[in-house]
């Protein structure tokens, strides 16, 4: 049933991963939770995005951003090695045009705000319920296309 709903979102230009030129939005997923990386990657892939990489910590994300040059990065606010807002700071200093969307559960509003001050373009709330999925897709698409 979830797959049916994702197929609907895949056809919605406000949510799907297709750019105006027909190419796919390329996403780097950064999260220390294997489960969450799996979920977000599946949702994004089934709605037309291309997940170009998955990374489990902020430090590794710095290397992957340079290597892969994604259109957008989804980044957990709390991670080992380097926390989300600090990773945003380093990424934006080296790649000023990078589009970053933070992923957070409740209780980390201060980190989300810090990341946005550093240049993140929005945030997604965990858990990724049926209601949160369309919100997530719109936030990601808007981060890339404005």
């Amino acid at each position: 049933m979830v797959d049916d709903i994702l197929q609907i979102y895949a056809k919605d230009p406000e949510m799907n991963g297709i750019k105006p030129d027909g190419s796919k939005i390329r996403v780097l997923v950064v999260d220390d939770s294997l489960a969450f990386r799996r979920l977000i990657s599946r949702v994004l892939t089934e709605t037309g995005y291309e997940v170009v990489g998955e990374v489990a910590d902020g430090k590794e994300s710095l290397l992957k951003v340079a290597e892969l040059n994604p259109d957008v990065i989804t980044m957990d606010v709390t991670m080992p090695e380097l926390e989300g807002p600090d990773a945003v700071d380093v990424i934006k200093r080296n790649h000023p045009n990078a589009n970053i969307v933070m992923v957070s559960s409740m209780g980390h509003q201060d980190l989300v705000e810090k990341a946005i001050k550093k240049g993140a373009k929005g945030y997604i709330l965990k858990p990724l319920t049926g209601e949160q999925i369309p919100k997530m897709l719109k936030v990601i698409k808007k981060a890339v296309l404005g």
Binding site: S33, L34, A35, F36, R38, S105, M106, G107, H108, Q109, K126, P127
Partner: peptide, 16 residues
């Protein structure tokens, strides 16, 4: 990993 994530969500909200 999913159960760890659930625990994180619950504790994060509790701490808040």
């Amino acid at each position: 990993s999913a159960i760890g994530e659930m625990a994180n969500l619950i504790t994060g909200r509790s701490a808040s």
